[in-house]
Amino acid sequence: MPHPLAVRWGDHLRRDRRRSPHTVRAYVATAERLLAFLADHHGQAVDVALLRTIGAADLRAFLARRRNENIGNASAARELSAVRGFLAFVGVEAPRLKGPRVKRGVPRPISPDEALALADTVAEEAHQPWIGTRDWAVLLLLYGAGLRVGEAMALTGAVLPIGEAMAVTGKRDKTRIVPILPQVREAIEAYVAACPWPIERDGPLFLGARGGPLSAALVRRAVRKARAGLGLGDRTTPHALRHSFATHLLGRGADLRALQELLGHASLSSTQIYTAVDAAHLLDVYRNAHPRA
């Protein structure tokens, strides 16, 4: 049976913090794991009064148990962050505990030719022509406008007809305006014309084979299949198209603040990772082209 404190925590994240369903599930699961561990550790039911007595040793023991379940540094760091948030929510100051060091990975962009080849291959392998037209439009939108795959799936028929820009709702219900390239607009218009199902103003823009909402999992699966045939690496995912969008804009001189707005990042620090991406790309060019490299 769910612990009442974890249920309240989930309601708060969903209603007040406007966190995504995935985030709510993950954070509530962490709270449930912590509460179950403490109940076992202390041999009694856990309430706010008991939570106020826990120290750094309790949290270390909790993380040690999670480590025994084979979670890595990144997962352990997320777990500790969720624990701190939960304790703050119930009015308990979390004991000071240094989290595991996590090496921040640099996104791996793909070249424009690879992005188009990927979209083209996914479209070619579709079972029906209109589905191929749809998949081409989806992937071109991710690469051409820098959308997250979930943002593309959340678009409704209200964006039609497509203009020079589009309102996109991202994380925490934050809306941003993204420019739409003519090629992207034409791809979406071709899909709308070919789709055998009616696209309602308040319904999803991208539909599945049976007329329901298109699943992001299906897009990811199609990309996995296509990248194998093209010899692209495992990091070539729908999200990699967003990375490529950002990296290529930055490489062409885009302002970091403008890029932050286009990507819908809450803070500039999230966008600054792309400066590392661009530096890595330049280093690759140098190594491949310089006679002394």
Rank of each mutant, 00 (worst) to 15 (best):
G150I: 04
R148F: 10
H127T: 14
V138P: 09
G72C: 02
D113E: 08
V159L: 07
L147I: 13
R134M: 03
V122A: 12
L97V: 09
R108K: 12
G157K: 06
D135M: 14
F89W: 03
G132C: 05
F86I: 03
P109G: 13
N73C: 04
I131L: 15
V138A: 07
P129W: 08
R96V: 09
V90T: 11
L147F: 13
G85N: 00
D135F: 13
T133V: 01
W136I: 05
T133F: 05
E93Q: 12
S75G: 06
A119V: 09
N73K: 09
G144Q: 05
V159W: 01
R148A: 10
L147R: 10
V149I: 13
A154P: 03
R108I: 14
W136Y: 14
V83H: 05
L116M: 09
A94E: 01
A117P: 00
L141D: 04
A117R: 10
R101Q: 04
G85R: 01
I131W: 06
S111Y: 15
P161K: 15
E93W: 03
E151M: 08
V138T: 10
A76Y: 04
L139Y: 08
L141T: 15
G72T: 00
V102N: 11
L155I: 12
Q128A: 15
A117K: 03
L116Q: 08
V106E: 01
A123H: 04
G91N: 02
L87S: 05
G157M: 03
A145C: 15
E93M: 10
D113Q: 09
G105M: 06
G157Q: 07
I131G: 06
A77R: 02
L160V: 09
R101E: 02
A126E: 15
I131R: 08
L155G: 01
K103D: 04
V90Y: 06
G150V: 09
D120Q: 12
G99I: 07
G91D: 12
S75K: 03
G91T: 06
A117Q: 05
P95T: 11
E93V: 14
E79F: 00
T133G: 01
